[in-house]
Design a protein around this nucleic acid. Sequence first.
DNA 1: CCACCTTACTTGACAATGTCATCTGAAATG
DNA 2: CATTTCAGATGACATTGTCAAGTAAGGTGG
Lengths: 196, 196
Amino acid sequence: MTRAETAATTRRALIRAASELLDEGGPDAVTLRAVGARAGVSRGAPYGHFENKDHLLTQLAVNAWNSLAEEAARLRANLEIPVRARLEGGLLALIAVARRQPHLFALMFSTPANTPVAVEAADRVASEFLALVADVVGEADAPRYGALLMSSAYGIAGMELGGHLTKETWHVSVEQLVHMLVDHTPPGPGEPGRAG
Amino acid sequence: MTRAETAATTRRALIRAASELLDEGGPDAVTLRAVGARAGVSRGAPYGHFENKDHLLTQLAVNAWNSLAEEAARLRANLEIPVRARLEGGLLALIAVARRQPHLFALMFSTPANTPVAVEAADRVASEFLALVADVVGEADAPRYGALLMSSAYGIAGMELGGHLTKETWHVSVEQLVHMLVDHTPPGPGEPGRAG
DNA sequence: CCACCTTACTTGACAATGTCATCTGAAATG
DNA sequence: CATTTCAGATGACATTGTCAAGTAAGGTGG
């Protein structure tokens, strides 16, 4: 392997290791020593690829934002499903991160990841979501609806994550949310379903 | 001062010191040594009052939740203002914490504070909010509306905090949120105002 | 093929921090 | 006043982020 290749491989291994450790044991489990060990290198190696630990964590957040942006773009391009379902899919994608990788979700919205790079990546996601909303309510109203929808989806995810939506009565569905905000109707009859 | 009095005073001083350090310098500034120093005691003193650092931080979160619960209860009891305004006030109180004490807000919803005690305190807030909602939409519909309203308010606060609602077009107001969700109408005409 | 340079990575070291065992002095008790 | 109790102080230790110095393998010129 050429030198540049080994370096790139190591960098990927470091990111992968950090991501796995975050998912498995939360933020406290992500020590540079543990990351290095899992990546097959030693504790100081990350400094050859990232300015410091925060930059490594920020990279995890940026990757997550980029994945979300890609998924939103994919959804929008999929003309086989109705616009409404595409929008709901985008919101659910955000919530899915909170469910599948709660620590990563927390990282995406936490201070260490609030560097300009991460905010920029998040803004790209916002743009994609805005487009999804525009497909439903039109360009003119998209910003107002979009902000409410994104905030609400993020809120549902975060509250659920913090254990504040556990009680049966507090379950909330994204479909309900979209229905109420976009169609301007009261919540549908019957049981409120679990989001998803 | 009797021994119990000095102990209680020290405990209060520790909580106050931790709170101030959190507000001033974020989570990293809250070291037990700094807390002790500001409280006029030494680094090991907190262990006489809290099981460990996390328990001290949890106490900060619990206090914040309790303040919110009190404010919601006060609002609900204030019959001089219309029910709608009371509900908006409750939601705004949550957002106000995010604006005035962003680090505290993050702590309230972060893992270290997700202990049973903190969740219980948060549940009391939820109950108060639920009552505020019930005063507007009735007992039957309160849970569904309440979950959406609380999640949305939390989402607005969190997104704003993370710098994801900075763009002019993304500003969102609580009044708009309540209006859309409760009255089932499209967002009002004209500029979307800043929440608050 | 060899001497030299470049660089990804390792290792030793250090300061900061959370935590605990031990100690101390003053309050409480009889 | 003697003794007990307990809030708080202090020394010590492991862990961690960080960096300077060292090392060895990849790359380059002759």
